[in-house]
Every structure is written in C-alpha cells, then in structure tokens.
Design a protein around this nucleic acid. Structure first.
Length: 384
DNA sequence: GTCCGGTAGA
DNA sequence: TCTACCGGAC
C-alpha cells in the first residue's frame, strides 16, 4: 500500500482558488482566454477524448481518460494511440480489466515501456472494483491510496472530474509556462514544477479548468514543441517572453544530463524438449516481463560452464539510463557439455533471484516481453 | 548520438 | 529531494 504523498493538499488548497485573469470589462483577452479560443479551433480529436472536452460524467469516460493517461505517462501521443485502441477493445471497463490476469494486461502493454504503469493500472482497476463499487472514487483524499496517481494525474482528474481549478502540470505545461514567462527552470528541479503549478493556479479559469489544462498541453504538444516551436502559429506569441528573447528554446533549461553506464551481459538460448527457458522478476528493470536468461558477463565467466554456450553475435540496446551490450549465446554442440552448461546457468539464475519457466516456441508470441528481448528472439529463432 | 516524458520508493 | 524506470522522435 502506498505511503502518504502530500500531493492532494494541492487539490484541496486549489478549491479556495486565487481568482484568474478574466476581468469583466477588460477588452484585451488574457492569455488563458486566448489559449481557450485557440484550443476550440485546434483541438485534435484523439481516440480517448469526448466531444467538446465536456467534464467527465459517464464512468466509461472516466475509465477511458484514466487508461489514456496511464498510457501517456512519459510517452508521446503518437506512440500511445494504437495501444489505447487495442487495450480498450480487450479491456473496455474497470470490471474487465480487474478480472484479467496481470500477464495478459502486460501483453497489451508490451513494447511501449515503463511496464510498471500496466501493473499499477491493473491494480487500480481491482481497487476500483473491490473497494469502490466499480466507480472511480470522487473524493480526492482517497486518491492517495490509488496506485499510479501522482500530482499530474491528480490535478487532471480534480479539474476534469470534479471541476476544481487545479492545474495538470505535465512536461508540456511546464514548457509553455517557462517560455511564456522566460523561466529558465531547470526542468529537473522539483521547485520549478511547483512554481509552474502555483502560477497556473492564479490563471486557471474556474469555470473551465479541465479544458484549460488540455489546451495548455495541446499547445505544448503541437505548437510550443521542445526543439522547433512554431512561434508564428502560436496564439500566445505576442505575450511570450521567450519569443521576445529571440531564443525560445532556451526555456526551460534542460535537465542536467546523467551518465549512462554501459553494461555487458551474456544472453542464453536455453532449449530442451521442455521448451525455451525464460526468466522474470518482480522488481528492477523490466520487472514482471519475461526475459531471455542473462547474466553479467563477469558472473558468467566466474568459473561456470556458461562459457561453453557458443557466441553468435551481439545485440545493443539503449535505455535512457543505461546501455546494454548483449552477447548472444546458443547451446554448445556436444550434448554432454550442453547439459552441464544448462544446469550451471539455471543455478546462477536462481542465485540472482530470477523466476524461471519453459515456453514452447509457439508460445513466445503471447508472452509479455520488452523490445530488447524481441530483438534477441529474432536472432535466436534460427537456432531452435 | 540527444532529448523527451509522470510516479514510486528510498 | 533524488533516483530508477522504457522506447521512440529528431
């Protein structure tokens, strides 16, 4: 169960509101009004959007919104669209999702990354069904107990579901605000996100908080883009401090780069009459997904028979925070050597805390597996 | 190659 | 408050 995160105090304090920039009799529209007008004309019809950005009323719309937002965490709209359609077709409501086995949910998530989102969403569906009668709770205080609902999604739902004047601060909103006011950031400073949220609270129109949040994010996605902003098309160009500066992309300052350690690992095709050996674990990188068994090249060399597996080439895979060089190994030619090497491998995997299971080759297509091991699968296929 | 993007757990 | 987590676009 989740710990207290202090995030919904934001939602509650927002209810007090600090007004907005829309003043009666003011002839010049404030930028939130300009933004809303632009959004009315440029809103993209995305598969999870209801017509006219109406507040969420039907539970089916709440479900679709939540699913789409889980898919969109740290993920672009274009990448998420196809996943959303397939996911909704198979899991059309909280009940179907809650009933499904986790492995099937992960299979629909495979390839899009950040797989923990899928297990959180699945667990969220079960909580909604078992503890809230199949209806997403309307009390923001109870959101603390829900997996996968952080400050952004909490703000989004507070606005869209409850009509509270609460900002939904994603990367797009941060960028648009940073440019509008020429705030440097840096983006990886938690204080920066807080300042953006505080500022947006003073501008968010109390009558249309959900639409305003969407509009801000839409502008960031389609016009105020990270690298090549289309300033001449921007409805806020006249009030944008970054544009006036002549260097809009200087805002916000990018997060400080992190080192990306290189890891060499040996990956094994382990094939018997029982099938092909795959492994998984509950935590860490690619948690809950199936992997071809792999060991750090160091531990594989440490006096084991794994070196008897024949090297057939390498696969490289870049994660954001690390780089993998995988050395592909297939069973040795001699069957005696093969048995010994296999026992050695299974023992070392168990010591590393991996759960092991054998799959028939035709079963692999239905197994949730990340991109990197689909690449490996392609290279191993000729050997089974 | 470099940059982009929310949440949880520590 | 910091770090781990994935894959795709440019």
């Amino acid at each position: 169960m989740k710990k207290t995160k202090h995030r919904h105090s934001d939602v509650q304090s927002a209810a007090r509101g600090s007004g907005n920039d829309v003043r009666e009799g003011d002839k010049t529209p404030s930028w939130p009004e300009t933004l809303l007008a632009w959004y009315g004309a440029h809103r993209r019809p995305l598969p999870w959007r209801t017509p006219g950005s109406a507040p969420l009323s039907e539970e089916a719309d709440v479900y679709r919104t939540v699913v789409s937002e889980f898919l969109l965490m740290r993920t672009r709209v274009r990448a998420a669209e196809g996943y959303f359609r397939r996911f909704l077709e198979r899991f059309p409501n909280w009940d179907e999702l809650a009933r499904a086995p986790e492995e099937e949910v992960l299979r629909f998530w495979q390839g899009i990354g950040f797989y923990r989102r899928a297990t959180y969403l699945h667990s969220l569906a079960r909580t909604v069904v078992e503890r809230h009668g199949g209806k997403f709770p309307r009390d923001p205080r109870s959101w603390n107990e829900l997996p996968g609902i952080g400050p952004y999604l909490s703000g989004l739902l507070a606005a869209k579901l409850l009509g509270l004047p609460e900002p939904a601060v994603d990367g797009n909103a941060q960028r648009v605000v940073a440019r509008l006011f020429a705030w440097e950031g840096p983006k990886d400073d938690p204080g920066f996100v807080r300042r953006v949220r505080d500022l947006l609270r003073t501008y968010i129109p109390p009558e249309l908080p959900g639409t305003f949040n969407e509009a801000l994010m839409e502008l960031g996605e389609t016009v105020c883009t990270p690298r090549s902003p289309r300033c001449p098309e921007c409805p806020l160009q006249d009030e944008c401090a970054a544009r006036r500066s002549g260097e809009p992309t200087r805002y916000p300052r990018p997060a400080s780069p992190r080192p990306r350690p290189l890891e060499e690992r040996d990956v094994y095709l382990c094939r018997t009459e029982a099938g092909i050996l795959l492994v998984r674990r509950d935590t860490g990188l690619l948690a809950r997904l199936w992997h071809f068994p792999h060991l750090s090249s160091a531990s594989a060399e440490a006096g084991s028979c794994c070196a008897d597996f024949a090297f057939i080439g390498t696969v490289e895979h870049a994660f954001t925070h690390r780089l993998w060089i995988l050395r592909l190994r297939v069973p040795p030619a001699s069957s005696a050597t093969c048995g010994r090497a296999r026992e050695d491998l299974v023992r070392l995997l168990a010591e590393d805390g991996w759960e092991t299971r054998w799959f028939l080759p035709e079963e692999l297509v239905r197994v949730p597996m990340p991109r990197v091991f689909r690449k490996v699968e392609e290279r191993f296929a000729p050997f089974w």
